[in-house]
Every structure is written in C-alpha cells, then in structure tokens.
Nucleic acid binder design. Structure first.
Lengths: 203, 203
DNA sequence: GTTAAACTAACGACCGGTAGTTAGTGTGAG
DNA sequence: CTCACACTAACTACCGGTCGTTAGTTTAAC
C-alpha cells in the first residue's frame, strides 16, 4: 500500500534531512510515484510528518511498556538495568528511527513544537513514574541508596541520553560493548566514600 | 565590522534553523545589509558556516584548556568536578552556541560531515587524554575506583551529554539546580555493593 | 449481466515563493 | 584614483502545493 510505503520512506528522509530539508519530490521518487500522488494519501507535508511521529511514538510506548511487564517479577535493580538496555536496544535497532526521534526532540520545526512536545511528553509520562517506583522499591529494600527517586530518574535519563549521544558520535560498533561497563560504574559509583560539597568540606 | 557581525548573526540562524534551513537573506536582513553583500566577505554559505564552526571550536578549546590549568593544584576529583561544571557552564552561558554545536555534532549537513567530524574531534583529542590522566591520578591516590580510565572518560562524557540533553528538553530553570546532585550520585553510585553481571551472579 | 456512476490513485503542467549565486554598478573614504 | 563595500537586477534550481485529467476499479441500480 502506497500509504505505508510513503510513511516509511518519509521517516528516512525526515531523519536524514529534517522537516524543512526533506523533499516531497525525493520521497515520492523513492516510493516510485510522483509528488502530487502523495496528496492522494496525505493532506500535506505537515500531516505526513505528524503521521510518522505518532507512529513512532506509539510503537515506542508499546515497546517500553511490554519490556516493563516482561520483567515484573525481578528485583528493582534488575528491572532498571533491563530498562536501561531496552532504551538503547530500541534505538540501536533502527538508525533512521533514532535520528528521527532525536531530531524531533532536540530541533523540532518551530511551528510544530507544541504538538511535538505533547506527543513526546506522553512517552515519558507513561514511563517515568514507573521508573521512579522501581527506584523507590529498591530504596525500600535497601539495595538502592536513599536519594530522591525523581532525581534518580533524572540521572537514569542522563545516562541513557548520554550513551545514545555517544552512540551517534562514535558509532555502534565501537560503543555497544561498553554498555554494561557503564552501568556497573553507574551502580557502584566511581569514588570511595561520600562526595563532599565545596561549601561544606568539613561538614 | 560587517565580517564579524555577519558571523555572529549567522551563528544564531544556523543554530535555530540548521545549515539548510538558515537563509542568507534573513541573515543579511538582520545584519542590516542585502544578501549579495555577504559575498563581499564570504565566498558563500559553506565558507560562512565553516567560519562560524571553527570560531566556536577554537573558543571552546581555549575555555576548556584554561579551566584545566586554573585548577591544576587541586585533587583529581575536584578537577573532574570542575570540568563537569565547566562543560555545562560553557554551554548554558550561550544558548545559540549550544544549539549550533549540538546540531553540528548530531546532524551535520551530509556534504560537510567529514570536515565537521575532524574539527569537532580536535576538541575531544585535546581534552580526553587530560581527563583520563585525572582519573588515573585519582586511581593511583586511591580516591577513585580502579576502573579503566578510558571507560571512565566515556562515562564522564555520557554524564555531561546526558545532562545537556536534559537541559535542552526541560529548560535551564528546572534543571541547573540538579547539577551537583547528579554528580554526587555519579560519585557515590546509586547502589550498595558490587553490581553482579547476569552471567556470573554467583561469582 | 449490463451499465453507468462514483471512487481511487496516479499523472503532467503549473503556481507563487525562496534559495544560493553572479554580474555589473554606485559610492564614499583614504 | 583606487578599492573596499554596498547596491540593484537577474539567474537557475527547487520548494510545497493545486489544477484538471485519466485509467482502472468498485458499487449499485436496472
């Protein structure tokens, strides 16, 4: 069906060239049709883009939710590690999807920013509370230090995002084997003892 | 001087709209001249872009190098914390510069990718060995766990990059106060005891 | 079973607009 | 008088989008 083929090709072009840079002529050409034919399936560039975005967003939510359910019996730390690898696995699986998602998050076309923020936000609103619950659970069991769960989620996302930026800059082949090592360091910490703030060294 | 004014305005437009999306007409208009007059100072869009890029790259290198020197007497962990905050301080100081740099790193215009990777790589080649040396020093002194220094640098960059992605997504006001808390968790680790790999739980 | 209307999905031609770029010209300061 | 720097005018190329048209298929009435 042309409808799906267009969406699939459009994803690739939006990922590579961005919203403004992607050309409907080029997309049509790769699909094997002419530009006006796209308008038989989509109202325009904007609708095509939003269709691609919501498709990815829904798929992403389904993936993360299913991963959370699959490891429901495990310990909080196992579940968190699994979510860490899941985030990364999902995005290393399909480079176009990764580029599209990152581009949309970091550099949304200005006139679509509000709708994009809303769509992307729904993913985090779905997952973040469940991550926080896992951290709280771990703290209750005494396997995770008693930091603020919200801040732990922030740190968790920093780790995931930072890893994915490294992935994009260095490439998957040099980087994927470092995944578990990074988690280990994250888990144990890199230093011995408490970190002392500048202002209260002798606290 | 128009030469500098053009470069300064171009930075803003490249940051906001990307290489393809930025318009020489708009840049000229904001400078207060007409589009063709840009060609009296730059050979074309490409040269203007690369001029902006190398300008930022040089400035960035100078800033990081000077920060490293300023804290040369301190303990490795203090110097590392200072570098962590410096990275973030440098980029929160100027939003346009941040956007430009991130865009260039993550979504370089295809036909300039090689040159961009080379220019950006020079920054890391300058700083990464010195970070690794700080980690090695800390390991030698017994204040930092005996992980591989290269992997510690990777984790360090993950933290910085992840933090900056959070900055871009959430905004500086909600986020900057979390800076030190994240470092503390990074330093101490979030868990108690060793992290056990899936395959060797009873090691 | 035939036939006519309606729908789908493709097309070429073309619109107004903007892009980067070039050629040629004016102008004012040293 | 020169030369740096601005200008106007024009160019080609491409953009997203609309038009009328056509071929093929589905639908429904007779």
């Amino acid at each position: 069906m042309s409808y799906d083929k267009i969406k699939q090709v459009a994803l690739k072009h939006f990922a590579r060239d961005g919203y403004e840079g992607a050309s409907l002529s080029q997309i049509a050409s790769e699909v094997g049709i002419k530009k006006p034919s796209i308008y038989n399936h989509y109202a325009g560039k904007e609708e095509l883009f939003l269709s691609v975005l919501t498709g990815i967003s829904d798929d992403y939510k389904r993936f993360l939710a299913s991963r959370l359910e699959q490891s429901e019996g495990d310990s909080p730390e196992r579940q968190l590690f699994r979510m860490y690898t899941s985030y990364i696995e999902y995005f290393t699986f399909d480079a176009d999807r990764t580029d599209f998602w990152k581009r949309v998050i970091m550099f949304p076309p200005a006139f679509l920013k509000e709708r994009i923020v809303q769509i992307v936000g729904e993913v985090e609103q779905l997952i973040a509370p469940r991550l926080a619950a896992l951290f709280s659970d771990g703290i209750g069991r005494g396997t995770i230090r008693a930091f603020d769960p919200g801040e732990l989620v922030t740190l968790f996302y920093s780790l995931v995002n930072g890893y994915m930026m490294g992935l994009m800059m260095v490439g998957p082949h040099d980087f994927t084997n470092k995944l578990e090592r990074i988690w280990t360091m994250f888990w144990q910490g890199i230093g011995y003892g408490e970190w002392e703030t500048e202002g209260r060294r002798d606290g």
